[in-house]
Amino acid sequence: MYEQTIIGLDIGRSAVKAVAFANGQEAQVTFPSLVCHAIQLTDENSIRAAEPETVIVEGRKYFTGDTARLQGGATSSIGLSNDWTETPEYQALVLSAIKRLSRIGVPGLDTAYIVVGTPAALYGQQRDRLEELTRKAAPNADVKALSQPMGAFLSFFLNQKGLPVSEHLTDEVGRRKSWAVIEVGHFTTDFLLMKEGVHIDRKSDSCEGIFMAAEQLGRILSAKGIDASPVACEEALRTKKIRHFGVRDIAAEVAEAAEFVVAKIMTKTNALLAAEAATVDGVLLAGGGAPIIHESLLKQWPHVMLLPEPRMAVAEGFCRFGKGQLRKRAAAITAKHMEAVNA
């Protein structure tokens, strides 16, 4: 049924997450969204280590991920603007994700069904262009763009086969359930409302993401004499530690920085969803920054649900959507064949 390889691709501004499905097996890769022009390396070990993370865009070599950080000196994530997908760096990250999947044995990548995402507020204006730009990196692939929070929703709503989970679809009396989604990413926090199975356009919007907390953490640490790069601050938000003459615990500083962005996210959350929160069946929380705001949101709305592996939820949902689409294609082909046989 799934003859075509499926890739759910979440090109985040902090990390790239990819979930692929081929020949009945699922595979995942994730790496930092770091890109720089490749430089000439002389050490043989360094050359071998860099090769898996080196790609060519329009005839020019780029380092990606940790190689961009270590060899190229990249210190900040790319894409802190709405039009960053127009850059060669976006192409480099798509190619790097495909190359990494190939290296772990995923077949059929040249003709894969690829699902990619945009921030909720930009979906209408960027969908077609994002599909076009992704095809530049994978010209023989089928490409479909969805909004980021829709990916998170689908990771919850669909099962591993790409079919709706019955208890998430209707209640015991057959009423269609309603769900809100908050996907806390690096550059944007995205919102989605599915009311009785219908996507409510006016509730799809975006606000600041966790990068503001990373920036604030950098300012807090600088005031204490600790010079930390944006990449180091982004990592510290998750680990609550930083390297500064050894490994230092900075849990208090991370909490202070998180409060700065949580207040902004909560303001937008209330503006968009406060009127709906009491009537939906649950508020789904996803994205790499989800654990940072989980407790604050839970105090307000007790039916908030932190999705399993929230950082991978968008890519996983995209992959499950792809499975569902290929099932529909197979069913349509079968039905057409039966019509021909019975004609």
Rank of each mutant, 00 (worst) to 15 (best):
L70P: 03
Q126D: 12
Y62C: 12
I98L: 12
P88I: 13
A68T: 03
G105A: 04
K136L: 14
R135C: 04
I114S: 14
E58L: 08
R69E: 09
E58Y: 12
A138S: 00
P149M: 15
Q71G: 08
S147V: 01
K144G: 02
A120Y: 05
T75F: 13
P119W: 07
N45P: 02
R135N: 02
L130N: 09
A121P: 00
H37L: 08
A74D: 03
A120N: 05
T134M: 08
G72T: 07
T64E: 04
G105I: 10
G105R: 13
A112Q: 13
A38Q: 02
A112V: 03
Y90P: 01
I98Q: 12
P52H: 11
E44K: 06
R129Y: 06
H37A: 10
A141L: 12
T64K: 02
A120C: 11
D66E: 10
E132I: 00
N140T: 04
L93M: 11
N140V: 03
P88L: 13
L146A: 00
A74S: 15
Q71P: 06
L101V: 02
L95H: 05
P149Y: 06
I78S: 13
V115G: 04
T118E: 05
T54Y: 11
R135K: 15
D142R: 11
R103D: 10
W84G: 05
D83F: 11
N45D: 10
K136P: 00
S81M: 06
G124H: 05
I56V: 11
T75S: 13
